[in-house]
Design a protein around this nucleic acid. Structure first.
Lengths: 188, 188
DNA sequence: TGTACATCAGTGAACGCGCGTTCACTGATGTAC
DNA sequence: TGTACATCAGTGAACGCGCGTTCACTGATGTAC
């Protein structure tokens, strides 16, 4: 049956949002169209009233995840006295390590995005935006250019969260986050 | 028909080696049992004469990839005058970015390993070994503990290669590698 | 040393399953008069 | 304002496909005598 246009648009957004979380948590290939529809309380057949294909949803969900990541970035820089420390404490925290669904899309999706050529633009834009903003907002040392330091920080943040999630030993996992945090906070 | 025991053992090793490369290049879930067998010049039915299940092959292939990664680490530290610089130049190179099949298993498999609890031990051991060896072999600055610096280096190396593979813009990709390299080489 | 037999790696057809996608159908919404 | 009709989001069965896995069978190898 037909539904109000507004309700349809809301459902469309809800599907993208759900997928953005599920893809981060379990990987893009591991999440089926049916599972996303089920999570939204619908049957799989309605999927193609909202998207042309799974690939279409994937692109939209990746862009949505990047948008959410960008917003989270902004809110964690809220401390005007030391935005860099606040940002690093938030990003390199055990909470962020364990909240994959709502966490930064880079440590959750970067490898899969690297393999599928289509959706690299959204991640490239996200990295550029993060680096530019870090250069402008944070205090940096005199060792090398600000931009080099911001790129090192980005690489280390992403790598540390990925490794902290992938190692077996909880104490090593926490050490990876803490050591990376200490080193990056100190370099200012 | 029956085959010489030696030949069988060779084939077994060859399957693990092929899988270790294919999993890194295309992801574990994306590589089928049939594809691995085909790459070895055999039919899929023989697979279960060598492994109990796909999961069994996955575990063996991850361990093999880590072993190969450890050997590559050793050989890239060959320059006795500046092993750290030689190591970083090798790891954070465009060649390493593009040679995924033969490259470090961490930037290729870390996220997938993070999702499947079973095979985290091999990656944890690999990180520990790399950090321990870096602490012992490289020259470090006085800013923070050697171990903290070695962990930052590891995080940044893994993150930089993953991001360099995942962004769309080739110049940004090269910049991520170069900037991370410059910052890590300088910190000694 | 020669013969008879058990072993088992490899083949290729077949299994059930879940995937992405399609389709005939439903029925409330939105539109035309 | 009321009536008639077109629209289209959603349902659930069905499609072909490739997956991991199983199985009856083959035949050279390895073993027992």
């Amino acid at each position: 049956m037909r539904y109000p246009a507004e309700e349809t648009a809301e459902k469309h957004e809800r599907l993208i949002n759900l997928a953005a979380g599920m893809f981060r948590e379990r990987g893009i290939d591991a999440v089926s169209v049916s599972e996303v529809m089920k999570a939204a309380g619908m049957t799989h057949g309605a999927f193609y009233s909202h998207f042309e294909s799974k690939d279409d949803l994937v692109s939209a969900a990746i862009r949505e995840a990047m948008k959410q990541g960008n917003e989270a970035l902004t809110s964690s820089m809220s401390d005007p006295a030391s935005p860099k420390t606040a940002f690093l404490n938030s990003y390199l925290s055990i909470m962020h390590r364990d909240m994959i669904k709502e966490g930064c899309p880079m440590p959750a999706l970067a490898i899969e995005i690297g393999r599928r050529c289509k959706d690299k633009t959204a991640l490239g834009d996200h990295v550029r935006r993060l680096v530019d903003r870090a250069v402008a907002s944070f205090r940096w040392s005199t060792r090398g250019s600000k931009r080099d330091q911001a790129i090192l920080m980005t690489s280390a943040m992403v790598g540390a969260v990925i490794l902290a999630r992938a190692v077996d030993d909880p104490s090593l996992s926490e050490e990876i986050l803490a050591a990376t945090r200490r080193q990056l906070v100190a370099s200012q």
